[in-house]
């Protein structure tokens, strides 16, 4: 079944999709983390309205399914507001980053809240301003708590990029589907290869997550 010849046919086609998969992933990571921090800080803000609005966003995106959000952004959003999201690329990136941004904003918020109260007090006793307390004392410790969780979300985001094939983006899975429909008997090898592609992309992320876990164990208050 899996002959070297067939592999030679399949491999070069699949590899064309890597560029899309990786660029969707990178854009989603950047935008996702950005959303996480902005929303996380908004939920800790003194402004009630800001807090409520962000709370609503977080609950809606955590309460519905990513694939539903993707379809909604791609098919429904342009109808409702009469504007296109731009392209299927942006629909995909927005769905992934808004979805995981909502989850990760909870990590941002939770980590900041779980820095020991004594830390803020000590910083106050040293006469630091509110901003200095956050920047020099609380945030550096909170980030160390966030990192391992953030690492796990990298892998979740990678996996979710496969959804963009459903809105017509030419990622790895899209080419896999094309190959399968042209020759069904190739399907096992095609999908196995697709899985291996994703796994290879995941390996550095897995490695990074382990590193981050090690790093975060070092510098946080625990006794």
């Amino acid at each position: 079944m899996i002959t070297i010849n067939a592999l030679n046919d399949v491999f070069p086609i699949l590899i064309q999709g890597i560029k899309i998969t990786v660029s969707v992933l990178l854009a989603s990571i950047v935008l996702g983390y950005l959303t996480a921090f902005v929303a996380g800080f908004c939920r800790l803000s003194k402004n009630v309205i800001l807090r409520k609005i962000t709370g609503f966003y977080v609950e809606v995106f955590r309460g519905t399914s990513l694939i539903v959000q993707l379809f909604w952004l791609y098919y429904a959003f342009p109808i409702l507001f009469g504007i296109e999201v731009g392209s299927n690329f942006w629909a995909g990136v927005l769905a992934i980053s808004l979805n995981y941004g909502a989850y990760m904003s909870e990590i941002v918020r939770g980590s900041i809240l779980s820095v020991a109260k004594g830390q803020t007090e000590a910083a106050t006793a040293l006469n630091m301003s509110r901003f200095q307390r956050m920047r020099l004392v609380v945030f550096p410790q909170a980030v160390r708590m966030m990192l391992p969780e953030f690492g796990n979300y990298l892998i979740l985001m990678l996996k979710s990029t496969s959804l963009v094939s459903l809105i017509g983006m030419t990622d790895i899975l899209y080419y896999g589907d094309i190959l399968r429909s042209s020759n069904l008997s190739q399907a096992p090898m095609v999908y196995l290869l697709v899985l291996i592609f994703y796994f290879i992309l995941a390996l550095p992320l897995i490695w990074l997550t382990r590193k981050l876990e090690g790093f975060s164990k070092k510098g946080v208050a625990s006794q």
């Binding site: 020991a116 004594g118 830390q119 007090e121 000590a122 910083a123 106050t124 006793a125 040293l126 006469n127 301003s129 004392v137 550096p140 410790q141 160390r144 510098g219 946080v220 208050a221 625990s222």
Partner: peptide
């Protein structure tokens, strides 16, 4: 508060050193 408390320092029961 920052203006007035500048002359005051405090040592805590649980040290509250910055671990990072």
């Amino acid at each position: 508060l920052r203006q007035v408390r500048g002359d005051i320092g405090m040592v805590f029961q649980h040290f509250n050193l910055f671990p990072h």
